[in-house]
């Protein structure tokens, strides 16, 4: 299947239609755990982007040399190396963000999205295509994190990137920066996406009587 896609499709596929977090449900741990502010989301997104891009390049370069029996371990080792680099870089450059993200930087290693891209794409395609795919998926991941981060920071702190946007009368909705807020935010984003998809389907089917009511009442 990957052979029939054009480079443009490789790029855009990961950004929206097969968005790693919102559609494929990969890389959920960081997407929920560190998105309580926009700054943290951006830092996490960029770190993951860096690791994904570098590992894709390396895996794709050595795809003919890696024996298939030990490929997963090899990918994990490659990813772990780049995560170590990202971890040390963040600690040196932006220590306060590094502190806020905590162990979740190390956990980029076990982000199934990265391993998934190596196994599904980089190990089967040439370096330029692997780069394009990694960029697309990485941007999709950043977009998903930014969506989560913006919703949670705006509702939970009443600020965006630290600037207050509701004025002084706003009572922050604390639950959104606490763990339950992460679950609720992604739950509601998925609800909205489902609703959007169904509406598109209904429109495509316009003319036919709606097969099965679109919204059944909850018992």
């Amino acid at each position: 299947m990957p052979r029939q896609t054009t480079p443009g499709q490789d790029l855009t596929r990961g950004i929206w239609r097969e968005n790693p977090v919102l559609i494929q449900m990969l890389g959920l741990c960081p997407a929920l755990a560190v998105t309580n502010t926009v700054v943290n989301s951006i830092a996490m997104g960029l770190a993951t982007f860096f690791v994904l891009l570098c590992s894709s390049i390396l895996v794709s370069t050595f795809r003919k040399l890696i024996p298939s029996e030990v490929r997963i371990s090899t990918y994990i080792l490659i990813i772990a190396t780049f995560v170590t680099i990202a971890d040390m870089t963040l600690e040196a450059v932006v220590p306060e963000v590094h502190k806020a993200l905590g162990a979740f930087i190390a956990l980029i290693v076990v982000n199934c999205m990265i391993l998934g891209r190596q196994e599904a794409f980089a190990s089967k395609n040439t370096v330029p295509r692997a780069i394009i795919d990694a960029v697309g998926t990485g941007i999709g991941f950043i977009i998903a994190l930014l969506m989560m981060g913006s919703i949670r920071e705006i509702l939970g702190y009443g600020t965006f990137l630290g600037f207050p946007i509701f004025g002084s009368n706003y009572e922050p909705w604390i639950v959104f920066i606490l763990p339950p807020g992460g679950f609720f935010t992604i739950g509601f984003i998925l609800l909205a996406l489902n609703w959007w998809e169904r509406r598109k389907l209904e429109r495509a089917r316009a003319g036919e009587p709606p097969a099965g009511a679109a919204v059944e009442r909850a018992a």
Binding site: F184, G187, L191, A218
Partner: peptide, 26 residues
Amino acid sequence: FVKLPAIARGNAIVFIIAGILSLAFM
């Protein structure tokens, strides 16, 4: 055994339940 709204089927409802469980654990 519950009739769910169509848009909530699948992962969406699981996340919302997880949120409520998480609230309880707080």
